[in-house]
Design a protein around this nucleic acid. Structure first.
Length: 519
RNA sequence: GGCGUUAUGGUGUAACUGGUUAACACGUCGCCCUCUCAAGGCGAAGAGUCCGGGUUCGAGCCCCGGUAACGCUACCA
């Protein structure tokens, strides 16, 4: 009941205020978080949500927390966590509490909190809001297929929910592996048929329980799923506002049900629009560079990226200007903290359009002093580290120092376009070559960026598709370097970096497809 | 298929509690500047606000009904 009153008065506030506002339960100091999973390169989407959380916290004197959601062992990438730290710091989004900086409510890495989740799952088991499920993945998959075939929504049939205490004891005695599932009402004496929650940007959203599945909370490997871990951690870490992407709306009722099962107060939910590809689908690496590493290595400035992200979905006053004669739509992180209005965010998914980002980046570059510009060039495209690694590839290949540039231009260019005679092998058609190049890209995407892994993966692909090692490597060389002559390919790609190599390959394919379509 | 969300030029946004020819930025095109390319300056084209009804003197803003796109629909997050 008090929650209802709280949400009602919040509604009134929302209607009357068009400015920074606090909610009915504003006694609690604001605490927000981002919770990326270390499953690969740090994502622009993470930076976007990070930016919003950062601004929200700074505006209200609150805390911004970084939590690592590493509960999925199968997708875990060991180098990912450090890259997340590095790229978020590079962007200028610093956190108050996190795995590397500590804090009073840690640990901030979910893999270090498994005991906590187990205890909490136990509470749910005891109070009847969750149950053990002994179904095997195979059984689950089979019923899923049946349901799909029968055009029914795929849903857990609740088999194990009806197990008798004796059956459960028997299964446990037999050491059968099990998961723990949320018992979505109605069950026991909880007969509620739907869950309604408030999204601060959209208003109330209701889900009938018939459409909410008995979600797995604890996997059979002892790790929690996102749903359990996120609710438990948000509560324990005293998160007041959950600011996350729109894709979570559908699972929010499960989270609300969990808060209720624990008898905890729910945080406010703010679901932000999803960044989109040009075709309006959710932003993805197949259609857009999404790695923050890519933007860093390709010479984008953090200030430009943050500024551009701040443009996504609105939030800044339309007439905002740093100074009367400064250009439109250009503002700093501090200015966003100063002027950003959360309730003005548009919820239609904005297209992440590189064209405008490039313009903005150019604006920031031009605004630098000549010396700072020089230093920016010096510290990125011509950094000692980069030059040193390229030099190592060049020493045996040149007779005068100035020949250095002859073979290494591709390391310093953005646009590399190999001519047809360079990329199409003599015995292949353009179509076959493009098909193979597409396969190469797919392989590269999932391969560790080391010499041996790359070599093995590429050779394996070549064998499968009947492409000789020479054809195979020459094609990739053409795509990456634009030429038939270059320093050793794999070493070059390693120095050039995974993010940029993949982007170059992607852009090559895109350009060729476009050219083919024109004919 | 089910559920949910969203909908203003190619893209990002604006339009006070419904009120003049829907505004700004990016991009595109043209002109100027100029050894080139940018930058900069000037200008233009491009949407009648997803569609159909309704309310109103008047609707991008309100109501009803459609449509489309996107998201979710995992022992992924």
């Amino acid at each position: 009941m008090s929650a209802e009153i709280a949400s009602l008065s919040f509604t009134l506030l929302a209607l009357n205020f068009n400015h920074i506002m606090t909610s009915a339960n504003s006694e609690a100091p604001i605490r927000v978080r981002i919770a990326p999973s270390p499953t690969g390169d740090p994502h622009v989407g993470t930076a976007y949500i990070g930016l919003l959380n950062y601004i929200y916290a700074r505006q209200r004197g609150g805390k911004f927390i970084l939590r690592i959601e590493d509960t999925d062992r199968t997708r875990f990438v060991s180098t990912s966590e450090q890259m997340i730290f590095d790229s978020l710091r590079w962007a200028g989004l610093t956190w108050d509490e996190g795995p590397d900086v500590g804090g009073p409510l840690g640990p901030y890495r979910q893999s270090e909190r498994t005991a906590i989740y187990r205890e909490h799952a136990e509470i749910l088991l005891k109070n009847g809001t969750a149950y053990r499920c002994f179904c095997t993945p195979e059984e689950l998959e089979a019923t899923r297929k049946q349901q799909l075939a029968a055009k029914l929504p795929p849903r857990y049939p609740g088999t194990c929910r009806r197990l008798t205490p004796e059956q459960i004891a028997g299964n446990e005695a037999a050491k059968k592996p099990y998961t723990i599932r949320l018992a979505v009402p109605p069950h026991g004496n909880d007969l509620t048929a739907s869950t309604t929650f408030r999204d601060e940007l959209r208003g109330n959203i209701t889900f009938e329980h018939g459409n909410v599945d008995d979600q797995v909370l604890m996997k059979s490997d002892g790790f929690p799923t996102y749903h359990l871990a996120n609710v438990v951690d948000d509560h324990l870490m005293q998160i007041t506002d959950v600011i996350r992407a729109e894709e979570w709306i559908s699972s929010t009722p499960k989270h609300v049900l969990l808060y209720k099962a624990f008898d905890w107060q729910t945080p406010r939910f703010w679901h932000m629009p999803l960044l989109r590809n040009l075709d309006k689908s959710k932003i993805s690496k197949r259609k857009n560079p999404v790695s923050l590493i890519y933007y860093r290595d390709s010479g984008y400035l953090p200030s430009a990226i943050l500024n551009f992200l701040g443009l996504m979905g609105g939030g800044m006053p339309a007439d905002f200007k740093s100074t009367p004669d400064s250009i439109a739509e250009k503002f700093t992180l501090d200015e966003m903290v100063q002027h950003f209005v959360f309730t003005d965010i548009r919820v239609g998914g904005p297209v992440f359009d590189l064209t405008k980002l490039k313009w903005l980046n150019g604006e920031y570059l031009r605004a630098l002093s000549p010396e700072d510009f020089f230093l920016a060039v010096r510290n990125s495209v011509f950094s000692d580290d980069y030059l040193r690694r390229i030099s190592a590839l060049m020493q045996t290949r040149i007779e005068t120092l100035t020949q250095f540039g002859d073979l290494t231009g591709f390391f310093f260019s953005d646009n590399v376009i190999p001519p047809a005679e360079v990329w199409i092998p003599k015995k292949r058609t353009p179509e076959d070559t493009l098909t193979f190049a597409t396969d190469q890209l797919a392989v590269l995407e999932t391969t560790d960026w080391t010499h041996d892994a790359l070599e093995a993966a590429l050779k394996k692909l070549g064998e499968e598709k009947q492409w000789s090692v020479k054809e195979n490597f020459m094609l990739l060389r053409a795509i990456i370097t634009g030429s038939t002559m270059s320093p050793p390919l794999l070493e070059s790609m390693i120095v050039f970096g995974k993010a940029r190599s993949l982007d170059r390959a992607r852009r090559f394919l895109e350009a060729q497809k476009k050219a083919a379509a024109k004919k």
